[in-house]
């Protein structure tokens, strides 16, 4: 269980950033006429601003863990509600883009690695470099120019209030998700293709692969059962390390396409100085990263029998 120390570590960093921040984060309340002064005082007291630092930390941490994230200055509802409304959208966009990335990276990376230095491999490599050198914010704009403005195929603003029903409703949702998912998925797919390729190249020259060939197995079986299966182990680790970048990309993508997820919520909150929302969203992103790291660890242990017997 390495997740708990990591969570504590990240929470310490978050809290330190907060504690070091100059000024009172709740100053905003004093100047905001919409917030009555007693609410401000109550908030200050609930956060125990004058207690010793470690007590403040633990109090803050328990509050965060229990989902007591205060309420939004701007939309005046509880932050946890606000985030719960928005989280599914973010997870769906990220989830489908990761599936897309995997669907590209696995076959392409394996094919490239099994034909090293061929034309196909060189094309894949160059495209992969282009793919992850294109920042998501630029690809997003390019896609809008191409698919929405030039071709007029896809809407470039995400619409939460689709009035259609039945199949039409689904179709509209899929249509407006295509570009955000493509932007994120292609970027990750490019990076992962390189991971898969290099992992497969590392495995393909190992002795046990020669053993598998010496058994007289067909090449496809050798590749899938004895090369790809083993190459997945390092790929899982590398993919887990990419999670912070994935979430960064999600924030940008949501902002470009106005997808109502927690990423665009974060940007809106920062522009509106909505401190509780900013804190909570950052915390949720931290939890998500740790969750995916934990998931990666579990998959890793499941893929590599040497781990469980260590």
């Amino acid at each position: 269980m390495i997740a708990i120390p990591s969570l504590l570590g990240i929470s310490v960093i978050l809290f330190t950033v907060l504690a070091l921040a100059p000024g009172d984060p709740f100053e905003e309340l004093a100047t905001n006429p919409a917030i009555p002064p007693e609410v401000r005082l109550q908030l200050r007291a609930s956060l125990g601003m004058d207690d010793p630092i470690y007590i403040r930390y633990f109090r803050w941490l328990f509050a965060m863990l229990q989902g007591e994230w205060g309420f939004s200055f701007v939309s005046r509802i509880n932050v946890d509600q606000l985030i719960l409304q928005r989280l599914p959208t973010t997870l769906i966009v990220i989830g489908s883009s990761q599936i897309l990335a995997l669907a590209i990276a696995l076959p392409v990376g394996v094919l490239a690695a099994t034909r090293p230095y061929s034309i196909f491999d060189q094309v894949v490599n160059t495209l992969a470099f282009v793919g992850f050198s294109l920042p998501t914010f630029f690809t997003g704009l390019l896609f809008i120019m191409f698919f929405s403005i030039w071709l007029g195929w896809l809407p470039f603003v995400y619409n939460t209030n689709i009035t259609a029903t039945g199949w039409q409703w689904w179709w509209e949702h899929i249509r407006q998700s295509i570009m955000p998912v493509l932007v994120l998925g292609l970027f990750q797919g490019a990076a992962w293709t390189r991971f898969v390729r290099s992992a497969v190249l590392d495995v393909i020259r190992l002795d046990h692969v020669t053993t598998a060939r010496a058994k007289g197995l067909p090449e496809s079986r050798v590749t899938i059962r004895h090369v790809v299966r083993n190459a997945l182990i390092p790929v899982v680790t590398l993919v887990a390390l990419q999670m912070p970048i994935v979430f960064g990309g999600a924030i940008v993508t949501e902002q470009i396409f106005r997808v109502p997820g927690i990423g665009s919520l974060l940007i809106t909150a920062i522009l509106a100085n909505d401190t509780p929302v900013i804190m909570a969203v950052t915390f949720v992103f931290a939890c998500l990263v740790i969750f995916f790291n934990l998931l990666a660890d579990i998959i890793y242990g499941w893929l590599d029998p040497r781990i469980s017997y260590r």
Partner: peptide, 19 residues
């Protein structure tokens, strides 16, 4: 391979698939 001619390699530590 294997059916008519079997082969044993030098490195037993790496010749078997660990997974």
């Amino acid at each position: 391979r294997s059916k008519q001619i079997g082969i044993v390699f030098q490195e037993p530590m790496t010749s078997l698939n660990p997974v």
